Amino acid sequence: MTQIYGHRGAKGEAPENTLTSFQQCLSHGVRRCELDLHLSADNELMVIHDPTLKRTTGRRGKVVEHNASDLVTYDARKGGPGWVHPCPIPRLDELFEKCDFEHWQLEVKSASRMRAATTVLAIREMAQRFGLLDKITITSSSREVLAAALELTPDVSRGLVAEYAWLDPLKVAQNYGCEMLALNWTLCSPERLAKAQRQGLHVSVWTVNEPALMRRLADFGVDSLITDFPGLATATLESC
């Protein structure tokens, strides 16, 4: 049975990577999610996709230039589906506290060696504090991040985010001891899928928003799909 992950919560239905978006995902009975993390100036884990604030908040500057206490006051409704109420940028611990997900894909964007180390250690500490160590996977397309995770937090599950075939995703995943392969759906041939699963990888494909494509990938046998529309995905896969 193919599992469903809400992409940045329910990105197609509510402002991405906000508490509202994750609550929207849960409202469909989808209890797996994917989100993006950046560190604030004071090294707090903030849930936002871009390194800059412009697209989702309309503000200038980078996430890393602002303290968490300021970031949580910035409304992140811009550029997404219309929403009546303000939706601030959340800290990761707020989501851990308020959202009961069975599994979290925590995507860490590329970072310097030092920032990668700080980030993975902060994730592990927080997940342990909330009793979620067995419910998270640190995912990244950055070898710096995966190397830091392998070295510093070896007991936390790792996943490679793969967008390009020429990088030989299966080999990279193997090099960093990954358990998950978050694969751009365009790279998901039945052959690559079978090979990855033989390697022991959970294959999670993104971003899958069309019902026909959801059905096709489920027929291929993908382990999970990441979608902006968790409600639509639930209805589609239940009718298969």
Rank of each mutant, 00 (worst) to 15 (best):
K98S: 15
K109T: 08
D100P: 09
E102H: 07
S112P: 03
T119N: 00
T118S: 03
V120P: 04
A116D: 00
Q105C: 05
R113E: 04
F96H: 14
A111Q: 01
T119G: 01
A111G: 03
S110G: 04
K109L: 04
T119R: 01
L95P: 07
T119Q: 00
Q105G: 09
C99I: 04
E94G: 11
C99K: 11
L95T: 10
E97C: 15
E107L: 05
E97T: 14
L95G: 08
K109Q: 09
S110C: 03
T119L: 00
A111K: 08
K98P: 11
R113H: 01
D100G: 14
A117G: 05
L121I: 02
E102D: 13
F101S: 13
S112A: 06
V108T: 08
D93R: 14
A117S: 08
E97V: 13
L95V: 13
S112M: 03
T118W: 12
L106Y: 15
V120G: 03
S112K: 11
H103I: 08
H103M: 08
F101T: 12
W104Y: 10
C99W: 13
Q105L: 12
L92N: 13
M114G: 01
A116C: 02
H103K: 10
R113I: 04
R115A: 09
A111E: 05
L106E: 09
L106D: 07
K98I: 03
V120L: 02
E107R: 05
A122L: 08
S112V: 05
D100S: 12
A116M: 01
F96N: 11
A116P: 01
E97M: 14
R115P: 08
E97P: 12
L121R: 13
M114C: 02
A117I: 04
